[in-house]
Design a protein around this nucleic acid. Sequence first.
DNA 1: ATGCAAATGCAAATTATTTGCAATAAGGAA
DNA 2: TTCCTTATTGCAAATAATTTGCATTTGCAT
Lengths: 158, 158
Amino acid sequence: MQSPVANDYQLASFTDMTTLLDNDELLNALRQTGARITKPRKLIIQILADKGDEHPDAMEIFRRAVRRDSRISLPTVYRTLKMLEEHGAIQKHAFVDGRSRYEPADGPHHDHLIDMDTGAVIEFQSEKIERLQEEIARELGYEIVHHRLELYGRKTKA
Amino acid sequence: MQSPVANDYQLASFTDMTTLLDNDELLNALRQTGARITKPRKLIIQILADKGDEHPDAMEIFRRAVRRDSRISLPTVYRTLKMLEEHGAIQKHAFVDGRSRYEPADGPHHDHLIDMDTGAVIEFQSEKIERLQEEIARELGYEIVHHRLELYGRKTKA
DNA sequence: ATGCAAATGCAAATTATTTGCAATAAGGAA
DNA sequence: TTCCTTATTGCAAATAATTTGCATTTGCAT
């Protein structure tokens, strides 16, 4: 059912997230900060760049990494994630369940709809909401640096 | 500078948050679920109802509680917070620092604008944003149970 | 006032994440 | 390529936040 007017939101779609994370630019940028491009780091960066199941937490990243190289350790995963976050390459999200989840920080900003039953995370983006946020902040005398919007909900029964 | 049209947002103002939490209504409601109104519970509810420094975490609530009754324990604080949350009386927020912070859930829902320089938290509410959120969720096949919107910003230089 | 289930306090367990340290391995220099 | 320096790793142990088991206490309905 198509609405006659354009939707005021869009599902986020990253046409080329992979190249943004998994490329020489990032690796070089990291190298230039004095960081060494080690095997575990390359692996973790690849995993983060893999589309598919989004927003893995540290343990999930660790599990995926172990599959490809059983010698990797959890602390290294944490250390690499922290490094990438400080570098601005990924973003850390704190959801209510206690764990932190990570995702590439490139691409346009988007918000999250979390399925309370399955834990699935749907990304969307709404121009209107962004504009409203800015307007509100402006009238309160503020300039938005970044924001976070999370909707928690359940599938409506068909 | 007043706009000719009504603002689409409002600063949240709880004229009487205290009575909402610290009153017989809540106590009776709790009693009716089979819960017992114990001394520690009354204390914690009072502390949460106290305005002033908002969004305390569990440890902070515990510290304040101990001041008034040194026999109280941290687990009881956690257990009471969980109970109140399940009852819908308070809301739990997970900020990025790992800890969870709590605040009364009564009154209308509101969102947060966080001053990145001072850490000040300004509460506001926007009907329009709420509606947009629901619309988006609906079109994605979801029903919103609750949400969280945080704007991080800096004061615009006069 | 009395009894019983709910709630408490304590200590110990969990869960997520971090840190100390000896061993390993990037990657620039020779 | 080999060597050297030092960042990084893996392991085990440490933290930090929160939860749980259990014996004891305490609301509160009778």
